[in-house]
Amino acid sequence: MGVYSRPVMFAILSAVVILVGTMVTMFVPLMLPSTQPVSEYVKPYTAVELEGRDIYIREGCNNCHTQTVRPLVTEVARYGEYSKPEEFAYDRPFLWGSRRTGPDLNRVGGKYPDSWHYQHLYDPRSMFAKSNMPAYGWLARRPLDTSYTFKKVSVLGYGYGEDEVRKQIDDYRSKVTSPDYLAKTVRDRITPPELRGQLTEMDALVAYLQKLGRDVKRLARGSHTGGVAEASGLVRNPYEGDKKAIEEGKGLFKKYCAVCHGEDASGEIGPNLRDSKWKYGGTDADIYQSISKGRPGGMPNWDVKLGKERIWKIVSFIRSIGEK
């Protein structure tokens, strides 16, 4: 009777039945340019960033880190602007991930200085005692293999010539091996002497992480988005001289700031906060602004993470330890 006694017909019928949903939800979107739009402001990866991305894939970083910020209030507060489809035009494969054992990384580029990443990849628990991330110090002990880089960018159609690929690699090597490189101290500490003059796998991975989300941030810089705790109009510190607030600020500093500025605030990855040198101004309002909105070169914005009150308490603590 019918298809139930005709195996080949049955197979053909099954194929037709499974192909309906496949066509509508998979094949049709693949043919629509609107599914994966391309925008001018999103640039392809450089040769070194691409090599870093391949290391990210090889080590399976996507098993613990996502790369999509969803349009939810607390998610935007934690990670930054939500992800846009055009950002992924050069992502083959995509790396959105499915599990956040570690935080989302779609907006990590430029959030911290390079030195932060070197130290963190080398020994995550030296910065965050409770972290369960594997240590990747061994990446700094392996030279970066660039023998397939040109072939890779050709396969991906990034449009770089062979000379350009060479130049990108050379330029990045000059940057990280220069005596002026801001992360030189950490990099030299974790890289064996014979590799300090070359690019390591760690260098490429840091380059890739620093690229994530930067095109979007560059676009957004013109029109500032504004968080919940704007400094404008609040020139006075509500906790000025308040002993209790300073004590609380000390605790908050230990928890959130000491990782980069040191337990005693005398500076490590971030600058010394005890001396009288202030790159962006040393009034309460200036310090508030630096914490709240962040500063270029690796100071993240803390406005939505900490809120006004906790930031002012930290300001009070920082003022209390400064050299008069």
Binding site: T22, T25, M26, P29, L30, T35, Q36, D54, P85, E87, F88, A89, Y90, D91, R92, P93, F94, W96, Y148, K151, K152, V155, L156
Partner: peptide, 22 residues
């Protein structure tokens, strides 16, 4: 394929994600 041990997906970004989860 780039070489014997490495290849790149035929699809990019959102399309790759959609094909992958299909």
């Amino acid at each position: 394929p780039v070489n014997l041990f490495k290849s790149y997906s035929a699809y990019a970004g959102a399309n790759d994600a959609n094909v992958q989860w299909w």
